[in-house]
């Protein structure tokens, strides 16, 4: 079946299988591999994207449900002239090791700061509770989000 959606500000059409996820459509049909596929069951957050401005796991959205809707992936977060402040802060704070969790965390952190520009530590932990990282132990990731909050 054919779906039509806006991804990172651009109209796209894609031929998808009825049972496939938005994550699969983004990665395999639209050539946007930024959103990562790890668990396919909503547990790890590495596939986090914004669907009509709401943070979701792309693996738990049926591609057909995104028909006529708007998606922003990690590829579309940054403005034209450089990285998004959260991306910049991840680099500055050393919050990236293998990097697999990074796209999802960057999208989730950007979503948090858009709604809560100066989060408390509790708000930060709760907002990122759906994103797993097997490398960093999270301390540097929290540093990065605090840095981005301070910078904006």
């Amino acid at each position: 079946m054919r779906i039509e959606l806006t991804v990172n500000g651009e109209r796209h059409e894609a031929d998808v299988w009825a049972g496939e996820s938005l994550l699969f459509a983004l990665r395999e049909r639209l050539g946007l591999p930024g959103s990562k596929n790890a668990c396919e069951q909503g547990e790890c957050g590495s596939c986090s994207v914004l669907l009509d401005g709401t943070l979701v796991c792309a693996c738990l959205v049926l591609a057909a449900q995104a028909d006529g809707h708007e998606v922003v992936t990690v590829e579309g977060l940054a403005p034209e002239d450089g990285p998004h402040p959260v991306q910049e802060a991840f680099v500055q704070a050393g919050a990236v090791q293998c990097g697999f969790c990074t796209p999802g965390l960057v999208v989730a952190a950007a979503d948090l700061l858009a709604r809560t520009p100066d989060p408390t530590d509790d708000e930060l932990r709760e907002a990122l509770s759906g994103n797993l990282c097997r490398c960093t132990g999270y301390a540097k990731i929290f540093d990065a989000v605090r840095l981005a909050a301070g910078a904006s």
């Binding site: 909503g42 957050g45 986090s48 709401t54 943070l55 979701v56 796991c57 738990l60 959205v61 989730a108 709760e126 907002a127 509770s129 759906g130 994103n131």
Partner: peptide, 9 residues
């Protein structure tokens, strides 16, 4: 429930 992502959907 779950996480923010799960609560949103």
């Amino acid at each position: 429930v779950g996480s923010p992502q799960i609560q949103n959907r």
